[in-house]
Amino acid sequence: KYSDMIVAAIQAEKNRAGSSRQSIQKYIKSHYKVGENADSQIKLSIKRLVTTGVLKQTKGVGASGSFRLA
């Protein structure tokens, strides 16, 4: 599940300011076997996790910027 992968990526990075979408994508692609549409799936999952309150956006708008666990 992409949401689990995103949470794992943010936990692994341990950046106080949060993790960027690009760094999350890079982590997921190197640690998991994902399909061609992974980028758009990650983007959608990040937006969903922010609206449900699992992630907090520290910089930027939408799916860009930095995110950390709430």
Rank of each mutant, 00 (worst) to 15 (best):
K1M: 10
K1T: 13
K1D: 13
K1Q: 09
Y2S: 01
Y2E: 01
Y2H: 02
Y2F: 09
Y2R: 01
Y2G: 00
S3P: 15
S3K: 10
S3A: 13
S3F: 14
S3Q: 10
D4G: 06
D4M: 11
D4R: 12
D4I: 11
M5W: 12
M5L: 05
M5S: 00
M5C: 05
M5A: 03
I6G: 01
I6N: 01
I6T: 01
I6V: 09
I6L: 01
V7K: 06
V7Y: 04
V7A: 12
V7C: 10
V7M: 08
V7P: 01
V7N: 00
V7F: 06
A8P: 00
A8H: 07
A8N: 05
A9N: 02
A9T: 01
A9L: 07
A9G: 00
A9F: 04
A9C: 15
A9P: 01
I10R: 01
I10E: 00
I10C: 05
I10A: 02
I10W: 00
Q11V: 11
Q11I: 12
Q11D: 04
A12K: 04
A12S: 08
A12N: 07
E13T: 09
E13D: 11
E13H: 08
E13Q: 10
K14G: 14
K14P: 09
K14N: 14
K14A: 14
N15Y: 06
N15H: 08
N15W: 05
R16N: 09
R16S: 14
R16K: 12
R16W: 11
R16H: 11
A17Q: 12
A17S: 11
G18I: 03
G18N: 03
G18M: 06
G18A: 04
G18V: 04
G18W: 06
G18E: 04
G18D: 04
G18H: 04
S19F: 03
S19T: 07
S19G: 03
S19D: 01
S19E: 02
S19A: 10
S19I: 11
S20A: 04
S20F: 03
S20M: 03
S20Q: 04
S20Y: 03
S20N: 06
R21K: 07
R21A: 14
R21W: 15
R21P: 08
R21S: 10
Q22E: 13
Q22D: 11
Q22G: 07
Q22V: 09
Q22L: 11
Q22K: 09
Q22F: 08
S23V: 05
S23R: 06
S23N: 07
S23F: 12
S23P: 14
S23G: 05
S23T: 08
I24M: 02
I24C: 04
I24Y: 00
I24A: 01
I24H: 02
I24S: 01
Q25Y: 11
Q25N: 08
Q25S: 13
Q25I: 15
K26A: 12
K26S: 10
K26C: 09
Y27A: 00
Y27V: 00
Y27C: 03
Y27Q: 00
Y27E: 01
Y27R: 01
I28T: 00
I28G: 01
I28D: 00
I28A: 01
I28N: 02
K29Y: 10
K29R: 08
K29P: 01
K29N: 05
S30P: 00
S30G: 06
S30R: 08
S30C: 13
H31F: 06
H31Q: 04
H31M: 06
H31N: 08
H31C: 07
Y32H: 02
Y32Q: 00
Y32G: 02
Y32K: 01
Y32D: 00
Y32S: 02
K33N: 12
K33Q: 11
K33V: 11
V34H: 03
V34R: 00
V34N: 03
V34L: 06
V34Q: 04
G35A: 07
G35Y: 04
G35Q: 05
G35M: 05
E36R: 14
E36W: 09
E36A: 13
E36D: 10
E36C: 11
E36S: 12
E36Y: 09
N37K: 08
N37W: 07
N37I: 05
N37L: 06
A38W: 06
A38Y: 06
A38I: 13
A38T: 04
A38R: 02
A38E: 05
A38V: 09
A38G: 04
D39W: 09
D39S: 07
D39E: 09
D39H: 06
D39M: 08
S40V: 13
S40N: 11
S40Q: 13
S40G: 06
S40H: 13
S40M: 14
Q41M: 14
Q41H: 09
Q41Y: 12
Q41N: 07
Q41D: 09
Q41F: 10
Q41S: 06
Q41V: 08
I42Y: 02
I42N: 01
I42H: 01
I42S: 01
I42Q: 01
I42F: 04
L44A: 12
L44Y: 08
L44C: 15
L44D: 13
S45R: 05
S45Y: 12
I46G: 00
I46L: 13
K47N: 09
K47D: 12
K47L: 12
K47V: 09
K47C: 14
K47F: 10
R48G: 05
R48T: 08
L49I: 02
L49D: 01
L49C: 04
V50Y: 02
T51F: 11
T51Q: 14
T51D: 13
T52L: 14
T52A: 14
T52I: 14
T52W: 08
T52K: 11
G53I: 04
G53E: 02
G53L: 03
V54Y: 05
V54H: 04
V54S: 02
V54T: 04
V54W: 04
V54N: 02
V54I: 10
L55F: 01
L55T: 05
K56M: 13
K56Q: 10
K56E: 13
K56V: 15
Q57W: 15
Q57E: 11
Q57V: 14
Q57C: 12
Q57G: 04
Q57L: 10
Q57P: 07
Q57M: 13
T58V: 13
T58F: 08
T58W: 06
K59V: 08
K59A: 08
K59L: 08
K59P: 07
K59F: 08
K59E: 07
K59R: 10
G60Q: 07
G60R: 09
G60M: 06
G60W: 07
G60P: 06
G60Y: 06
G60H: 07
G60T: 08
V61H: 12
V61F: 12
V61R: 14
G62Q: 05
G62D: 08
G62C: 08
G62A: 06
G62T: 06
G62R: 06
A63C: 14
A63R: 12
A63F: 10
A63H: 11
A63P: 07
A63W: 09
A63D: 11
S64Y: 10
S64T: 13
G65V: 15
G65R: 13
G65P: 15
G65A: 15
S66K: 14
S66P: 07
S66M: 14
S66Y: 14
S66D: 05
F67G: 02
F67N: 02
F67Q: 02
F67E: 03
F67M: 03
F67D: 02
R68I: 14
R68G: 05
R68M: 14
R68S: 11
L69E: 03
L69C: 07
L69V: 07
L69P: 03
L69G: 02
L69F: 05
A70E: 04
A70W: 06
